[in-house]
């Protein structure tokens, strides 16, 4: 059955968790305006990944992981350009350039970085093509995703924590009249400076995020840092009433209730 949707509704972490727990086999395609990826799984384990739709050659992956010096990577690419990844891997091992473990480590790190790059996506389409196999020439690898799911979950929790600190972005910021720290000791990064430049009671945090090109998570993190530094204060535009306490159903005699439920069951059976 179909497994497709939008990352704004179903995060990459939830997807990876689902694929892992359900031990799925097939290819997960992610397509957003900024990036795309193809992740192939076998029984819930990652066996292949590409950022974009084109695979990165093995030599480049090894150079990226600094397992092969960049200078050597160019000459090896040239020398072995007719070999596919699997043939090249065997050749590199037999020639003593790399061990099998090093190749696996390099590929694993590369795949993890592809997934980490997807954590920041808050919008984009995904679909899962069941039973789609990895390319025949790829290095056979089976990578469990529990660690990276935990890592992504932590990031998501951080976002949740920030949301509880700054639940609404429809509030404005103003400069604190008496900052809690000496402003000369504060070092702001580029994102923080961008936000600071728009601080005004007239601008909501949401509006600042749009002009500063920050997503909800990023703007919350910046505002949180500025609040912690005592530089700004939130100006709440409204004060929603506190939610009413939960109301419990009245207690009943269990025998009476059981009898009542049985009567309803008998009736439903006749529908």
């Amino acid at each position: 059955m179909a497994l497709k949707g939008n990352l704004s509704d179903f995060s990459i972490i939830q997807l990876l968790n689902l694929i892992t727990l359900a031990k799925k086999t097939g290819a997960l395609y992610i397509e957003s305006s900024s990036k795309s990826a193809r992740l192939i799984f076998r029984e819930g384990k990652l066996v292949y990944a590409t950022a974009g739709m084109d695979a990165m050659p093995l030599i480049k992956i090894m150079a990226r992981s600094k397992l092969i010096p960049s200078s050597m990577a160019a000459s090896l690419s040239e020398r072995y350009r007719s070999l596919n990844d699997m043939e090249l891997g065997i050749t590199l091992i037999n020639s003593g350039y790399l061990t099998q473990d090093q190749i696996f480590t390099g590929i694993t790190d590369f795949f993890k970085d592809i997934i980490r790059g997807l954590f920041t996506l808050t919008d984009g389409l995904f679909h899962f093509e069941a039973e789609e196999p990895p390319p025949l020439t790829s290095i056979p690898l089976r990578m469990t995703l529990e660690d990276i799911i935990i890592e992504g979950s932590r990031q998501a929790h951080e976002h949740e924590d920030l949301k509880s600190e700054i639940p609404s972005l429809d509030v404005a910021l103003k400069f604190a009249e008496r900052p809690g720290v000496n402003i000369r000791d504060i070092n702001l990064n580029a994102e923080e400076w961008r936000v600071i430049s728009y601080v005004s009671p007239k601008n909501s945090i949401k509006q600042i995020a749009v002009v500063a090109k920050l997503n909800d998570f990023q703007i919350r993190r910046v505002v949180y840092n500025l609040l912690q530094a005592g530089l700004v204060e939130l100006i709440r535009l409204n004060n929603p009433a506190a939610p009413a306490p939960p109301r419990m159903i009245p207690a009943r005699n269990p025998v009476e209730q059981r009898n009542l439920v049985n009567r309803v069951i008998d009736r439903i059976k006749t529908i």
């Binding site: 059955m1 179909a2 359900a22």
Partner: peptide
């Protein structure tokens, strides 16, 4: 609001693009 018994029901299972029950449970 009320800690009473409940069940979860996956509607529109007759449609071709319906998610499977297993996937919905995980989701």
């Amino acid at each position: 609001y009320a800690p009473t018994p409940y069940i979860v029901v996956a509607n529109k299972q007759d449609l071709t693009d319906a998610w499977s029950l297993e996937d919905i449970r995980v989701a």
